[in-house]
């Protein structure tokens, strides 16, 4: 594996990890709201969350460009508040990956929260636990399988994200050129077939490793629940 290939993989990993780490808490919050609360506009929230899944990724990328570009309202806000710029930067790639992975994170977490017997929380309260304690000792541990399933799915999506990323932050080697973008770029050049194949092999290996790891984690968790 050459140096450029390694840097492409490291960049992709950084983008995907950042995306999932930043998206996880808001995804849990949205999943919790959708699973546990009734409020006006619930349908709209649900539609917004699902939108990146059904919209052409190019459209999502263009939306991000308008909102989070250097002249976009949210882009300016982040720039002045936190000093984080998104335009043509790896942070933008992470944002695009996070937005695209968001619905995949929310769904399994929401399902695990919906499947959870609310009676456990009630029982815990009568044993002296406050709402917050119930959350950390009951709700969160019981939702863990859903959180892990969502994270694995979301990570895979973030790692392979293409359309929204290339539209939003372009294809800049060393900055926004993740694995999928690099493969695409190589396939465009007449002499890139061999290099592209190497990257494709790496992508397949990474995907397999992720599947094995998630299976192992899931089995370990359920085993702990039953032993």
């Amino acid at each position: 594996m050459g140096e450029t290939e390694l840097s492409i993989i490291l960049l992709s990993a950084r983008v995907a990890f950042t995306a999932i780490l930043c998206a996880l808490v808001p995804a849990f919050a949205v999943a919790w709201l959708l699973a546990r609360k009734e409020f006006t506009g619930k349908g709209i929230v649900q539609a917004l969350v699902t939108l990146p899944l059904v919209l052409p990724p190019v459209v999502t990328g263009y939306g991000l460009l308008i909102l989070f570009g250097s002249k976009g309202p949210l882009g300016k806000l982040f720039e002045t508040l936190f000093g984080i710029g998104f335009a043509f930067r790896w942070t933008g790639a992470a944002l695009a990956a996070g937005v695209m992975a968001f619905p995949l994170l929310v769904r399994p977490i929401r399902l695990s929260l919906e499947a959870m017997d609310r009676g456990y929380g009630e029982a815990a309260r009568t044993l002296g636990a406050s709402r917050l304690t119930v959350f950390f000792t009951i709700t969160l541990p019981l939702a863990l399988p859903g959180i892990i399933a969502g994270s694995v799915l979301g990570f895979a999506k973030a790692l392979g994200e293409f359309g929204a990323t290339i539209t939003f932050v372009s294809n800049i080697p060393g900055e926004t050129q993740t694995l999928s973008l690099a493969i695409y770029a190589l396939l465009q050049s007449p002499s890139g077939d061999a290099a592209a194949l190497r990257l494709i092999a790496i992508a397949v290996a990474l995907a397999l490793a992720a599947i094995v790891a998630s299976e192992y984690l899931a089995r370990k968790l359920t085993a702990k629940g039953r032993a």
Binding site: D117, G119, Y120, E122, A123, A124, R125, T126, L127, G128, A129, S130, I138, P141, L142, K224, G225
Partner: peptide, 18 residues
């Protein structure tokens, strides 16, 4: 409920499965 000091045994036990 957590401030009432009242124990509750439910019909379905409700043991925390984890």
């Amino acid at each position: 409920p957590e401030k009432r000091g009242i124990g509750f045994v439910f019909q379905d036990a409700r043991l925390f499965p984890h």
